[in-house]
Design a protein around this nucleic acid. Sequence first.
DNA 1: AACTTATCTGAACAATCGTTCAAATAGAAC
DNA 2: GTTCTATTTGAACGATTGTTCAGATAAGTT
Lengths: 195, 195
Amino acid sequence: MARTQGSHSDITGPRIRKAALRLFSRRGYAAVSMRQIAAEVGVQAGALYNYTPDKQSLLFRLMQEHMQELLNSAAELPATENAIEALKQFVGFHIRFHLQRPDEVFIAYMELRNLTPENFAEIEALRRNYEDTLEGIFKQGQVEGLFTVTDSKIATLAVIAMLNGVMTWYRTEGRLTLDAVEQIYWDMVRRSVTR
Amino acid sequence: MARTQGSHSDITGPRIRKAALRLFSRRGYAAVSMRQIAAEVGVQAGALYNYTPDKQSLLFRLMQEHMQELLNSAAELPATENAIEALKQFVGFHIRFHLQRPDEVFIAYMELRNLTPENFAEIEALRRNYEDTLEGIFKQGQVEGLFTVTDSKIATLAVIAMLNGVMTWYRTEGRLTLDAVEQIYWDMVRRSVTR
DNA sequence: AACTTATCTGAACAATCGTTCAAATAGAAC
DNA sequence: GTTCTATTTGAACGATTGTTCAGATAAGTT
């Protein structure tokens, strides 16, 4: 056997990334072998190297695409009246975006240490970029006199940490709707930064 | 060569766990080999098996001891006047305890998926146990009419997530003292659950 | 139908993995 | 000083790792 029936790079490429995403997310980058990824796709390990120069690049691409999409989506949020409205919008966006992509989010955080220093620096820059959008809201709110926040950087990190916590427990089939979760968290966030 | 000078199980045992803790925390359980741990201790890989039946047990013991110490320490907190005082005390305790043990905390979260199902269940039970102490505070506060919290479980998870966020950025040599950090987070937590 | 190109196989590579164990030697006990 | 025991070495085991590549075959082009 050699080339198989129905083989096509437009199909195999995405399937490889999808399989890698799934496996990396569940077992971790270091614990997943190229052969396991290949098996999930239904292909031999050697075939993967038509789509990625190496395992590291496969991980990096998954993380980079995710972060890029996060930034692009955040940039498309409509303008708001004031910082409180902006914060509310951000909370809703963040929760929804992340709950829709549990695997990507998990990897983007857990596998940072498995990136080469160069790749790490690039992903880290994207992450900072995203944090800056939230910090910008806090700074604007300080100017407008709407927040009790004294340290916008800490507030940013604290709020993002709290929101990320949703991912550890929320399940679609659970007792709470997405709207309800959003409301609960918005209440807590709003109270934590206003009086 | 065989037994080496100064060899003693009272010394080697703890050194192995310390080395494993360090390496697991920095590179991840799956990415660390028994030979790397042994090298850090200054011993051959085979010697490790006098102190652990296998790699998995080494990880499990580190996590179990950490969680047990967390629970014991939390149990020793003095009684308080009301739920708000209890919450304040908990916030301070949680931040300090965790900032003192960055490696243990990191492992206890990141390496959960590398535990066998049985070991995972045990660690998970300890974690739930700890969460219950915080949830108990919220429930008590609801009874006392001190909190705006409607869902004590979600409030528990949200607050713990927010507090854990400290670990991602706080450094002793930074511009903020531990007291200042504690104060900032207590302000946010207090506001988020009261009116 | 003939030819070119894209895709995959299957075997092989050296390196590394967790773990076992007989042999060797240091420390402890008498 | 002799004996006993605790501790470590060092080699070995089979399994698995990421990666390469010549050869084979399907898809695409003419």
